[in-house]
Design a binder for these strands. Structure first.
Lengths: 346, 346
DNA sequence: TCGTATATATTAAACGTTTTACCTCCTTGC
DNA sequence: GCAAGGAGGTAAAACGTTTAATATATACGA
């Protein structure tokens, strides 16, 4: 009893005309009388005709769909980026399909393959880390072989030269450190994660470079890593750090979520943020203004990043651009709230 | 120079055999010598062959894809539900495509139509409110005509009898009110939103019913609505309320995000939460434990909801279930944190 | 040696669309 | 009265895959 979907052929039978005529009528092509056309169109609407993608796709018609593969939908920042993407894809008449890789490379590879199979017209990918370099190579070869244009967002893939839109995390870190120095902090640690993404690495490298520049020597041991950037794992790591040393006055967190975990840990041992220890985050999460201690953090324009990525992708899809391009956007700066205290000069 | 994708036909030419042989080899069907099969399979792997969905789809082969249309990807709660869905769809070998309607009915209708066009095997939908009832009818007729099974999640569509998985928001509200009464609160207001979804309506109705039960009379005027459930809009509304009256001791918020806005407003006029005014939320957001005032809130098992929705959908897709089913899950209860104070008995 | 399996491969149709080339009628202008 | 052209339509191929039906060669048992 399964509802058989309306097809061009069935309508052709219904009207006693050829499939070509139905197709022409529905697509507004010449060669059909106005009278017949309107009868056909009315019938199609009344019966909720939706063209079969497979039939169309096989004819090589662009379906105007772009696939987005992000690393973690639970991260509120992506929401802005996705909005940015949607604003431009809407403008060009494209639809988006969103997949989350959950920062798992196997999931990512699977989702990308599904998108290739589904013949999306292009992809925007936030690449995850591949511990298995052969699998990574495999995936990108498949992607290239598919001929589907794609743009990387936020993170680059080491050793590969693809289109890319991201912020300059080195500069972002420098902004954070400069801000802390301005507030007279000198002993600063960086709490980040074990992931080997360019974002993580750049923010850590930026931290070390800025410390080097300011103090003449960067201390690798001041960089701490929790397994993944969650509140709970950051909390645990911070507890551990506080057990080992308390000679620092400020924590520069990899992102706001990590900062939340750090703050939770500091408060839990009876210390105050920012009176005892200052914390600065990165990303300007929606919750940062209303978190336990409203968070001072480095802000980047996520909406703009999404827009740019989509623009480049559409240029590629529609043949307006051939050469690969990398867009590196500067962070907007430090948003001041109340998690950093100005110290007296020592 | 666009990379032509590898096709069965091109491989048939390459090997000097028929397309049937290639297809059999690749699909592990009998009728091909082991020697030839392995040469073909090797060649396909080496050249990153990915079968063309359009060709397969046209043959009526299930692609094992389910479409998820949620109302708001920025809402962290959906993340758990999506995880629940993925856990079961993974188990059955299905992939997910995620779309966000942004709580906009036109967007929702557009995305659903794209999913129908793409011939997904099923959908899980968190339906938004349609001010235009004709458009709503239109959409659901199209959906039914498509023959694609779907399950509603979280919210029902008024006047329609579809498969559904949701929690009992009436009971959730009652839990919140009971908890507040236990803490000796008697004068309670409800801050919710203008949206006409079943979730909003049920939580408000639950509030009024519980108040009626406890006090003998429910006061419609104790229900306040901001336009949409965002921190900022809830903040504004709460500021306005506080300007009009301060005769209540507790606020029951529609969800945690609204609660955050309410708390922000109360603090901003120099009052304390919970010492002056208590606030209870709903949803148990990831940020609720670490918000400005750690939030006491009603918790529901979102992962389980996602799982159930996916299970029902897959039963429908694979023909194990015919009749429509509604699963109404009880909320887990109130999670106690520090935004509600126990009052002295008056 | 024949008939019969068996293994291996092919042919051709089918799925739903679009599109090119073609057909038939009717106007119109000369 | 006829050519040219337009309007309204059809036939058939093509896209990439799967699959039922069929073909061929080889091996085997009797």
């Amino acid at each position: 009893m399964k509802n058989k979907r309306l097809t061009i052929k069935s309508m052709a039978d219904e009207f006693g005309v050829s499939t070509a005529t139905i197709s022409h009528a529905l697509n507004g092509l010449p060669g059909v009388s106005e009278e017949l056309r309107s009868r056909i169109v009315d019938y199609a609407n009344k019966n909720h005709y939706i063209p079969n993608t497979f039939g169309r796709g096989l004819k090589g018609i662009a379906l105007k769909v772009i696939g987005i593969v992000i690393s973690d939908i639970s991260n509120a920042n992506y929401y802005c980026q996705i909005n940015g993407i949607e604003s431009v894809s809407d403008r060009f008449g494209y639809n988006n399909i969103l997949c989350s890789s959950d920062d798992n490379w196997q999931t990512e590879a699977a989702k990308i393959k599904v998108l290739i199979e589904k013949n999306v017209d292009g992809m925007i990918i936030v690449p995850t880390e591949y511990p298995d370099k052969i699998a990574e190579k495999e995936l990108y070869q498949t992607l290239e072989a598919s001929g589907i244009p794609f743009v990387l967002m936020n993170r680059l893939v080491y050793g590969r030269n693809y289109d890319l839109v991201k912020t300059d995390n080195l500069i972002g870190s420098e902004m954070a450190i400069n801000y802390l120095f301005q507030k007279n902090h000198r002993r600063i640690i960086h709490l980040t994660t074990d992931q080997n993404t360019s974002t993580v690495n750049d923010r850590a490298a930026g931290f070390l470079a800025a410390m080097e520049k300011r103090t003449g020597h960067a201390i690798e041991q001041d960089v701490y890593r929790c397994e993944r950037p969650t509140v709970d794992l950051a909390y645990e790591k911070m507890i551990q750090i506080l057990g080992e040393r308390q000679d620092f006055t400020a924590v520069f967190a990899y992102n706001d979520t990590v900062a939340f975990g750090a703050i939770k840990a500091i408060l839990s041992i009876g210390k105050s943020v920012p009176d005892d220890i200052s914390v600065i985050g990165y990303d300007d999460n929606v919750f940062s203004p209303i978190s336990q201690v409203p968070l001072t953090t480095v802000r980047q324009d996520n909406y703009y990043i999404g827009e740019k990525a989509a623009e480049i992708l559409l240029d590629k899809i529609e043949g307006r651009r051939k050469k690969t391009i990398k867009i590196i956007i500067n962070p907007e700066g430090v948003i001041e709230r109340s998690s950093v205290k100005k110290l007296d000069i020592v």
